[in-house]
């Protein structure tokens, strides 16, 4: 559903500010963040556009954008913002909000990767790369990208065939469970 720009609709803005803990409303559209953004050319929205659309309450367009999943978390925007807005933290919060709102993700690979990675950590206390990759490939059905890399990496000893479990794996599983409960209370 298309959003209607609405100056009075500050609910979305307030919620993003609360979750990210950063003053999105302070953005005055200097575009410094967008100028230095490495994924700008690949994205459907620039970071300064995301900030403006949050001001305007365009929740659907923001949460359904590719931009929030393409953010590389490189912190260039956060470092350079003259108003000290932690733009990278805003992108993190928007991803969480998009997953919670169960929006139709334009490209679900980012979320599928996150789930595969965290599942591996939850199970082993550390990332087991090979297992994580298999889980991701099954989720994304993206079987061919980098297929030849696996052989190269195995040959160079860069992937192990078995997980190297942390001795604290059980505590990690408990931490995952309690962190999940804490997030529901936010």
């Amino acid at each position: 559903m298309p959003d209607t720009p609405d100056w009075q609709n500050s609910t979305f803005l307030k919620e993003v500010e609360r979750r990210s803990g950063t003053p999105v409303s302070a953005c005055f559209q200097c575009h410094k963040c967008s100028t230095g953004c490495p994924i700008g050319p690949d994205s459907d929205l620039l970071s300064s556009q995301v900030m403006r659309m949050i001001h305007l309450g365009q929740e659907n367009s923001v949460l359904e954008s590719q931009a929030i999943w393409l953010c590389a978390s490189c912190e260039a925007c956060t470092t350079r913002c003259p108003m000290q807005i932690d733009i990278a933290a805003v992108m993190d919060s928007l991803r969480m909000m998009a997953v919670e709102a169960k929006v139709d993700l334009p490209n679900a690979r980012g979320e599928q990767f996150n789930r595969s990675f965290l599942q591996s950590v939850r199970r082993n206390g550390r990332v087991f790369e090979l297992g994580m990759m298999v889980a991701y490939k099954l989720r994304s059905r993206d079987f061919f990208t980098d297929a030849e890399k696996t052989g190269q990496m195995l040959a160079k000893g860069k992937l192990s065939l078995l997980p190297k479990k942390s001795g604290s794996a059980k505590e990690v599983a408990d931490v995952f469970r309690r962190a999940g409960e804490e997030e529901k209370k936010r």
């Binding site: 942390s166 931490v175 309690r178």
Partner: peptide, 16 residues
Amino acid sequence: WVCCGSTPAHTTNASL
């Protein structure tokens, strides 16, 4: 030692 959570954790669950 255990995994730091890297980018998947900070984009998924702030507490984690």
